[in-house]
Nucleic acid binder design. Sequence first.
DNA 1: GAGTTTGAAACT
DNA 2: CAGTTTCAAACTC
Length: 695
Amino acid sequence: MDKSQKNPTSQIGTSTPKSKFEDSPVFNYISNLSPIESVKSISTAQTFSSLSFTSPPPVFTSPHVISHRESRFFRCHNSVDRSKHLESLDGSAVKGEVVVPLVEDLNKEASLEDEEETSVETSSELPQILKFDSQTSEHSDSPCTEDVVIEASSDPPRGDNGSSSEDVTMGLQNMLVVREGNDTPGCGRLISDATELLVFRSPNDSEAFRCLVDKISSSERRFCAGVKSTKRPDINKDIPANGSSNENQPLAVLPTNESVFNLHRGGMRRRCLDFEMPGKRKKDIVDDQQSVCDNNVAGESSSSCVVPGIGLHLNAVAMSAKDSNISVIHGYSISGEIQKSFSGSTTPIQSQDTVQETSDQAENEPVEEVPKALVFPELNLGSLKKKMRKSEQAGEGESCKRCNCKKSKCLKLYCECFAAGVYCIEPCSCIDCFNKPIHEETVLATRKQIESRNPLAFAPKVIRNADSIMEASDDASKTPASARHKRGCNCKKSNCMKKYCECYQGGVGCSMNCRCEGCTNVFGRKDGSLLVIMESKLEENQETYEKRIAKIQHNVEVSKEVEQNPSSDQPSTPLPPYRHLVVHQPFLSKNRLPPTQFFLGTGSSSFRKPNSDLAQSQNEKKPLETVTEDKTEIMPEILLNSPIANIKAISPNSKRVSPPQPGSSESGSILRRRGNGRKLILRSIPAFPSLNPNQ
DNA sequence: GAGTTTGAAACT
DNA sequence: CAGTTTCAAACTC
């Protein structure tokens, strides 16, 4: 009976598709892997199962989860990556470019796309994990891993020079290796950034998964922490007994204090992280870098240092970038330790840039510098000096800026610390402060009260869309905005050009929600008129951009020929110019910046990153929804249109980075990647909506 | 560093 | 919901 039924199906199903699938390398690969093999004409179901076999249990579990996490993870990289990306392009450096961008693209795609993407996504992330954790699924994932690696290596310079591809692979390996080494601070950083990934390391996937889910879905990360931890003894030692309570090692897996720390810090604290980044200054960063580097072995120092950077918090990047431009408002974290931890996370990013550049091109100006100038020159023009000055003051005078409450007892939203979900610490100049661990109950109660009044009170003021990058640009040109202020500002006299304006402060344009008067917000006016300034800037950049591309191409060729140290080549080509491309970053960073860092999510609301977040956040926050939708709709058009046009029309940020330039064929190879990313995006587009069932 | 300005948060 | 007050950051001198 069954057979009869099955057979027909199987025949139909298998035979027909089989021919199709067989051709695909994936199928072959799978077939090879699968122990089941061709044994018998398995029912259709089986056949498919085999297909899915790779991803099934492990993948499925993780993928979704990962998608959330990853998006975060990657997102963080975006800014960094891009900068790197560009930088690398500049010189020869295929290395940074290759690895990072690819991963990033993969992530994006993955996040956007569902199943296939998921696998890819997983692969991108899993590779590291899997390799290190033999426990985890083996072959099923391995393939993906390979694919990823291959892509990464192949993609980039691929045609250009094998060496470069190798480098890329090496880079990945290094990352992995570092991770293996895991005890080194540097790796810790890396991992810390990828904290989420770490979870998977735990032998018990289910737990990890659970943890992730909690993390993602609920604002209370502490739950996660609460979850038993499969920990690594070695790591735990270092963990500072900070704060408070729950010192259950949440994810003991975390290698470093920082990472652990971060995890420990529940929703509120987590935010801290986000906010804190901005506060972090060069100085700290440098120190951190040094420390990191120092820890690393001389020979590998560079790599080590670099590695960490790969998986960092975007926030850090964005923040750092922004910081350079704008003084940060938020102060800091809980304690010196915390700060350190943060700095640690930050460090990687910075360090990466710094290290690479420093090592590769010491002569180049500091990373930060470029962004400053390039980033939003116009924007900053007016108050740049002031800001700079201020930031200096804030940065140097005090390790971090804190509140200065006199009457609110730091139990109202007036208090930045409280609003940010962090306890006040020494640096604060507050009086009669109740926002301390000692008064935890009071704090929680007050917080609750406020939340009851306004559930979003502690949510990020600035809501960014899933792809802040994409959206930001989109918004700017077309719609209200991917990123915008939760409630909108109400400025009367500042014209939304000062930090009094929360929109401006948050680096986002004003939206319809704003009731501001005489809005001249450089990030976008309430009326929708975009940044005129930006446009002009973009145009200028456009030219430069093309030139640079040509240059890049040239470099690529050279690198091919040389097929050796790209770094050696770099010297010849000054990064600065390419950095210019990075301009977007800063912008992005700005948009993303300060306030709530998206991916990290805010304590109260499940404000997470992008897509995944959207699904959740949508329930809570409609703005996001809107944004997302807009974006979704917009994207296709954008893609269809010529990249350049898009770039102008849209925001410089993402567009620029991604948009392939029509330039020469060579550039094509490099850009192609980008192009691919887009392609993927296209595919994903349809899928995107599906991700948000809620809609 | 003190004083002023500003707009969000809180209150009525 | 609108108006007013309170508050602390942002800004100026």
